[in-house]
Design a protein around this nucleic acid. Sequence first.
DNA 1: TCATAATAGTCAGTGCGCTGAGCATTCCTC
DNA 2: GAGGAATGCTCAGCGCACTGACTATTATGA
Lengths: 155, 155
Amino acid sequence: MAAVDLSTHPGHLARRLQQAHHLLWNTMVSEEITSPQFAVLNALVAEPGLDQRTVGERVGLDRSTIAEVIARLTRRDLLDKVRDPQDGRRWLLRLTAEGLRTHKKLTVRTARMNQVFLAPLDADEQTVFFDLLRRVADAAEDLRDAARTVTAQGI
Amino acid sequence: MAAVDLSTHPGHLARRLQQAHHLLWNTMVSEEITSPQFAVLNALVAEPGLDQRTVGERVGLDRSTIAEVIARLTRRDLLDKVRDPQDGRRWLLRLTAEGLRTHKKLTVRTARMNQVFLAPLDADEQTVFFDLLRRVADAAEDLRDAARTVTAQGI
DNA sequence: TCATAATAGTCAGTGCGCTGAGCATTCCTC
DNA sequence: GAGGAATGCTCAGCGCACTGACTATTATGA
């Protein structure tokens, strides 16, 4: 009887928002390529030859997750991994021709999907929506980085 | 060269928001009980004796996922499953004393966490934030339901 | 009443996302 | 130049989340 109203819980809303997005993505963009996979393709269009860790940083995925995502994209022949001759620890990543084509195709569909997704909001509200979302996410990420620095110092 | 700015993609922002939330949850609420697990406990505090499918509906999880979440909570002795004597297909769910205690404890911590999470926004902005998030998520869920109805009719 | 449909739940398979441990390579410093 | 720290990556393990196929049970209706 002390139950809480989940609709005032940002975490619950964030999860529902992502589920809704995932569903729309599957029907309007692609059933093969996921949204995080598209983010990786996009990062490599912007900066070809990035290493794995940096790509992960760009799209917000940790080292383990980015490795799996990249493995799937490589399996689909959408990108190539090459050892960095300057640093034998790094894999340098680059889209294949097929990867470029896929990125181009999905960019168009993604734009369409975003319109549908945001249709309930008018233009001003969309601007506010992005602003608020970004500010909350950025602040929480700063908290994380701060916590990591502190624990890394053994405090 | 035709790369897109991901910060204008609601799906990407939703994912980052959830990651940020997950992290804060782990540090401020619990490393054992996850946010979806708490949502299930909460639903059963509000309505004890619900069946699995209905709980899933309340918290926004499909039948497969809710089954796993409930299995974990059962393993931790936070809830009991009993066959419905009226309908042998159903499992009726009810919190244990331990489950109730855990819910109570986490409710307090969750409130604290939400304050920190939303701290970057002032009170008015928080209201707008919830409103926009809810409207987008609701609309997308309606789209899903519509799509399901249509495909179920074989159109 | 008896076949069929609908419903609740399980199971297998795929993918995202995290932590912690471990390996190889490179960098730094003495 | 050699030892130790830092870095890039992999691997194992856990948990969320979905679909599609399956089982068991109940409901429906000719």
